[in-house]
Simulated assay, not measured.
Amino acid sequence: MKQLLVFVLFATLFCWLMFSPIYKHVVVLRQSLLQQEVDYMLEVGASGRYGYIDAAMIDDSRTRLSDYGFRPEMLEYEVTTTSGLPGTDGTVPLRRGDGLRLVIRYPYDGLMDIDKLIGVDPPSSTSRMAAAGMKMSEYVP
């Protein structure tokens, strides 16, 4: 009985040690892809040509991220501004100097569940990784 218990404990520890680096890399990769997308969208949206991030840009972003394995329906986008104006309205672009802020959130999707094997609580099912950024608009009418 003691040998069986040692085997089970060793097997769970071995599985965790073997797979832990893999899913941690997935989390890091997803986080970096989200941040890269935020930076790209802010570069385009705050440029002198646009001054906003509209629904079409967000749809294009969902498509780009789905190419990397993200589920588009799970991505959450939040666009805010420092001036209080809507940053998603193409008819009212932000003037030069107004801040455009973008946050993209995505669930952990059970990636950390294997941590239960060693007694570490994974993030809750409602927890989300997020990437955020802010850029000043360069749009001049």
Rank of each mutant, 00 (worst) to 15 (best):
Q35E: 12
V92W: 11
L102K: 03
S83E: 07
D109K: 04
I53Y: 04
G87M: 02
G87I: 02
L111S: 08
F70S: 03
Y68Q: 04
K116Q: 07
I22G: 05
D121Q: 10
Q35R: 07
Y68S: 08
R62T: 05
G48Q: 10
V38Q: 04
R96M: 10
R128G: 09
L65D: 01
F14A: 02
D89T: 06
L29T: 15
P122V: 04
I114S: 02
P72F: 06
L117W: 12
L100M: 01
Y23N: 13
M74F: 13
G84P: 10
P122A: 05
S20R: 06
P86K: 06
P141C: 04
Q3W: 15
F10V: 12
V140P: 04
D98S: 05
S61R: 00
R62E: 05
E37K: 11
L102D: 02
V44R: 05
S20F: 14
Y77P: 00
G133Y: 04
L65W: 03
G84D: 09
S125G: 05
R49F: 15
P93T: 05
H25M: 15
Y68R: 03
T88N: 10
V28S: 15
E78C: 07
A46V: 05
T12L: 15
V8E: 11
L75A: 01
R101M: 06
M18G: 13
L9I: 13
A132L: 12
G51N: 00
M18Q: 11
L94V: 00
Y106M: 02
T63E: 10
S20Q: 10
G69P: 13
R105C: 01
K2R: 14
P122Q: 01
V8Q: 12
S124H: 09
L102N: 00
G90A: 07
M1R: 08
T88I: 06
D121C: 01
Y139Q: 01
M74I: 04
G90F: 06
V120Q: 08
